[in-house]
């Protein structure tokens, strides 16, 4: 039961970070391998403000969101859009964006290492809390609730507003969206920026209960990618369920076998998905 609860709580936070990457990959068609670094930056901000001025990470999240939005918008506009424009086909763009976002990722890690090379860890709401007969740390629960709220808000925004509909239209068919008068470049930039902001907030939340460090981002990128592939690219429902599964499996493996094997567990899931359902949990086989 303990495993179930903390696994689901962890999965909820994973879902938020995967949602961010899903917006970037599903809409802007950029495989952003610097996504994990956004997450670590969000955590780093929470750490600073908490240790320096005892500011609650929940408030930090409000600061992180607009900053990450602006930062990711700039990255898309000035680094990635030129690649989109110069590429002749999707394959070329894929290779270019993978290499460029590797570059951004390493550059960010480099900068973070030089300002804070140690572990990013602090103690916020680390009190025990009893839920359904099992005890979890309060910070996990708070992070989960915040993640769920943001996820729900995002879902409503995507489905109920004009801008959200445009974002979904671009994700379904870039060309057709352009033909019906949607400014694809602007919507892509918006989705990319929003995705970065969501991931960074996810990082702020995750830093309350997981110890991060400057170079750990790639592991989170990896997990977010596994979640997206498992859930199906562009499928938010799928991503949430996939994130919960990953959270559960990781927690189970960490508790029952060894905490050092969580990545290996993620890989086993990844392999199973590739072998049995490469179209995602809810995806339909197209051919």
């Amino acid at each position: 039961m303990d495993i179930l609860i903390s696994g689901l709580l962890l999965g909820g936070t994973y879902a938020l970070m995967a949602m961010g990457l899903n917006l970037q990959y599903g809409v802007a068609r950029i495989m952003n391998l610097a996504n994990g670094e956004m997450l670590v930056l969000g955590g780093l901000a929470a750490f600073w403000l908490f240790t320096a001025s005892a500011i609650s990470p929940l408030i930090t999240a409000l600061v992180v969101a607009p900053l990450a939005f602006a930062g990711n918008w700039l990255i898309y506009r000035y680094l990635l859009l030129p690649l989109v424009r110069r590429s002749k086909n999707q394959g070329q763009l894929e290779v270019d964006s993978i290499l460029a976002t590797f570059g951004i990722s390493f550059a960010l890690v480099g900068v973070m290492v030089s300002i804070h090379g140690e572990y990013i860890t602090y103690s916020y709401l680390a009190d025990p809390f009893s839920i359904l007969g099992s005890t979890v740390a309060l910070n996990r629960l708070v992070a989960f609730l915040a993640a769920a709220t943001i996820g729900a808000a995002l879902y409503i925004w995507l489905n109920r507003t004009y801008a959200g509909t445009a974002v979904r239209a671009v994700s379904v068919d870039t060309e057709a969206a352009g033909l019906v008068g949607i400014n694809v470049d602007r919507i892509s930039a918006l989705a990319f920026a929003l995705g970065g902001a969501v991931t960074a907030v996810g990082g702020t939340l995750i830093s309350t209960f997981i110890t991060l460090d400057a170079s750990i981002g790639v592991i989170f990128t990896m997990k977010a990618l596994i979640i997206i592939i498992m859930g199906g690219v562009g499928d938010i429902r799928g991503a949430i369920i996939a994130a919960l599964i990953l959270g559960l499996v990781e927690t189970t493996v960490a508790t029952v076998i060894d905490p050092g094997l969580t990545l290996a567990a993620a890989y086993v899931i990844f392999l199973a998905v590739l072998l049995f359902r490469p179209q995602g949990l809810f995806g339909r086989r197209t051919s």
Binding site: G103, A107, V109, G117
Partner: peptide, 20 residues
């Protein structure tokens, strides 16, 4: 020694944008 990662990142960017 602390700037190797940063250098790696900048090299990637240099290659993608200027010497593809």
């Amino acid at each position: 020694p602390n700037s190797t990662t940063l250098f790696l990142g900048l090299s990637f960017l240099l290659i993608v944008y200027f010497i593809p």
